[in-house]
Each structure stands twice: as structure tokens, then as C-alpha cells.
């Protein structure tokens, strides 16, 4: 291994150790025995087949959002609006399922159409953010954030308004769909191998696309230096729009899967922060798709396992978020420190 590689590994391991140290200190401050608390997270994640299934259920949307932001990151775009794109995917999927649920169409076809509608919904919402940036000069971070708020408001309007349950006005969501319109899952679980399979295929496809295709290379060129790419004949704004569209499509797919596989209805906050979590995963892996699956799996496992912190130690389960955020923050800091170190060297 070259010297620089050792330095890289050293900084990354150092960041992980510091993150663990800080988390441990926080646990001690909160009155929880750290080792037992970590053990409880692990047992909460892997202690039963149900819990492992639950990890896989949450892994799926996280893989999709991570895949999406890897593409926009490659094109040099911070697609903060991914939460809204996921929400629009859920809305479009719900709309199609509602429209077709009482028709004679085969349920499988309705599910497929619903998922496709979700893909389109997410892509269109992302295209809006892309258009705002490309043609309106609106930074994609601000445009995305604004569109996130709009998507939330739209969901609330639909849930309390035209799509409300008969006799009910509640943020609990729309009327659950008939079981025949659920994405098939393993018996007695919400784990859909279809959802999982699609998500894995997407992340694998993104890996190969970014690693070994002209498309991926051009996206990266746009992301690294847009002007240079333009001078080299790459149609930059078209590639930016393409990145938005593809990311939105994956986010929309993720939202559609939440509707057809997990909740079986539309509800406010259906994106559940998966978009932002996907951003964290992408940053943690330094935008290398190779690591997306295992790190997303790790995040999903922490999410599930940390529920035990509240059950056993009365700690708020949002502690999982603290651990994840710390990890990302320190790895980014470590990367910054590494670059300074190498420059000085």
C-alpha cells in the first residue's frame, strides 16, 4: 500500500474512533452504560428475524435515495429537494392506485402503473428544481428546500382534503389500499423482495454507470469543472437536468415503494427523512457508489437497533441520528484535515 493510502485510511479510522468516543461520552452523560448501550443497538438490529427484516425494509428506500444523490453529486449538484421528490413519487403512486383501484385491471398491473407514476412524479418534481437552477438561476439548495415545503403542503392538503378517509380528517393518512394492491411481501412481514431487488439493481446500475460509462464520465466532468466540460463539448445544462431527472426518478420510486410496500397509503412525512439520510450516506462514502450498499445497510441497522436505547435506557431514539450525523461530520472533517496534511507534506 502506498504511503498516501495509509494516510487516507488513518484519517478515516481516526474519524470513526473520534465519532465513537464522542458518542460514548454522550451516552455516559445521559447515564447509559456505553458498552451495554452499543450491545442493545446491535441486539435491537439483529436480535430477531423480525428486526433483520425491518432493517431490510428500511434499507430499500435508503438505497434508492442514496443512488439518486450519488448521481446529482457526481454532476456537482446538491439535490436537497430529494425529500420532496420522494414525496411526489408517493403522491403520484397513490393517485394512480386510487384512480384504478376499482377498475377491472389486474392488481399487478395497477401496482406497476402506480410505481411508474411514482417514478414520473419524482422525476418531474426534480425537473422543476433543475429548471429553477438552469433557467431561473435559483441555487438548487434553495429551490429544493422550497419545493420540499411545497410537497409537504400538497400532501397535507390531499390527506385532509380530496383524499381524506371517509368520515375522517386526520394526518394519519389516506384510506389504506386493499391488500391486493400491496407489493407482494414475505408472509407476515412487510418485507418485499421486489422492493429490495429493485433497490439493489438500481444501486448496482448506478455503480456501473458512474464507474465505467461515457455518461458517468461526462456527469463527473460536469461536476468537477462545468466550464471545462462545456469547452470540451459536453452539453452541461442538459447533463445537469439529466442528473436531476434520474435522481428524482429514483426518489419517486422510493416514495412509490413506501406507498405500495410499507404504509399502503399516503401520509404526511412519508419521505421520513430518507432523502437527507441518503445525502449523509453519500457524503460518508465520499460519493463512491461501491460503498453505498453496506453503509446504507449500517445506517438502516442503526435506525432499527437504536429503538432499544429508548426501551432499555429511556434515551430518545433520535440518538441514532446523533451517531449518524457525528459520523458524517467527523469523516468530512477528517477528509479536510487529510487534505491539509497532504498539502503541507
Amino acid at each position: 500500500m502506498k504511503k498516501n493510502s495509509w494516510i487516507n485510511v488513518g484519517f478515516q479510522v481516526g474519524a470513526l474512533v473520534v465519532a465513537l468516543l464522542i458518542t460514548t461520552l454522550l451516552l455516559v452523560a445521559a447515564g447509559a452504560p456505553p458498552l451495554k448501550a452499543y450491545a442493545s443497538i446491535i441486539s435491537g438490529a439483529f436480535g430477531s428475524s423480525n428486526n433483520i427484516e425491518n432493517i431490510l425494509i428500511t434499507w430499500s428506500p435508503l438505497l434508492l435515495t442514496t443512488a439518486g444523490v450519488l448521481i446529482t453529486f457526481s454532476a456537482g449538484l446538491w439535490n436537497i429537494g430529494i425529500e420532496g421528490q420522494m414525496t411526489l413519487g408517493a403522491i403520484f403512486a397513490t393517485g394512480v392506485l386510487r384512480a384504478l383501484q376499482n377498475t377491472q385491471l389486474p392488481p399487478a398491473l395497477i401496482i406497476i402503473l402506480g410505481i411508474l407514476a411514482g417514478v414520473i412524479g419524482g422525476a418531474l418534481w426534480a425537473a422543476l428544481a433543475g429548471a429553477l437552477k438552469t433557467f431561473g438561476g435559483v441555487n438548487e439548495i434553495f429551490g429544493g428546500l422550497g419545493l420540499n415545503f411545497v410537497s409537504t403542503a400538497l400532501t397535507i392538503y390531499l390527506v385532509f382534503g380530496p383524499w381524506k378517509r371517509p368520515g375522517v380528517g386526520s394526518m394519519s393518512g389516506t384510506q389504506p389500499f386493499d391488500e391486493k394492491l400491496w407489493l407482494p411481501s414475505l408472509p407476515h412481514t412487510e418485507l418485499s423482495l421486489w422492493a429490495l431487488g429493485i433497490s439493489l439493481l438500481v444501486i448496482i446500475a448506478v455503480y456501473f454507470m458512474l464507474r465505467g460509462t461515457h455518461l458517468g464520465l461526462r456527469l463527473k466532468a460536469v461536476g468537477k469543472n462545468s466550464k471545462a466540460a462545456f469547452l470540451m463539448g459536453v452539453p452541461t445544462w442538459q447533463y445537469s437536468m439529466f442528473a436531476f431527472l434520474l435522481c428524482g426518478a429514483f426518489a419517486g420510486l422510493s416514495g412509490a415503494i413506501q406507498v405500495t410496500s410499507v404504509y399502503h397509503r399516503l401520509l404526511p412525512n412519508i419521505s421520513n427523512g430518507y432523502g437527507f439520510l441518503g445525502l449523509l450516506v453519500a457524503m460518508l462514502i465520499n460519493y463512491q457508489a461501491l460503498w453505498a450498499a453496506p453503509i446504507a445497510f449500517f445506517f438502516a441497522a442503526v435506525n432499527i437497533g437504536s429503538v432499544q436505547l429508548q426501551i432499555q435506557y429511556k434515551l430518545d431514539s433520535s440518538f441514532a441520528g446523533v451517531l449518524q450525523d457525528l459520523l458524517v461530520l467527523l469523516v468530512l472533517l477528517g477528509e479536510g484535515a487529510r487534505q491539509r496534511f497532504i498539502k503541507k507534506g
Binding site: 394519519s172 410499507v262 404526511p268 432499527i304
Partner: peptide
């Protein structure tokens, strides 16, 4: 509750599993 930020992506039945 549905969409609770305390348990991102988890349903009540999944929490009952815990």
C-alpha cells in the same frame, strides 16, 4: 405516530417487534 421523526421509516408494528 405515522411519520414520527423519532422513528424514521418505522411503523408501529415494527416498533412493537422491538
Amino acid at each position: 405516530y405515522s411519520g414520527s421523526p423519532s422513528y424514521p421509516g418505522l411503523t408501529a408494528s415494527q416498533l412493537a417487534d422491538q
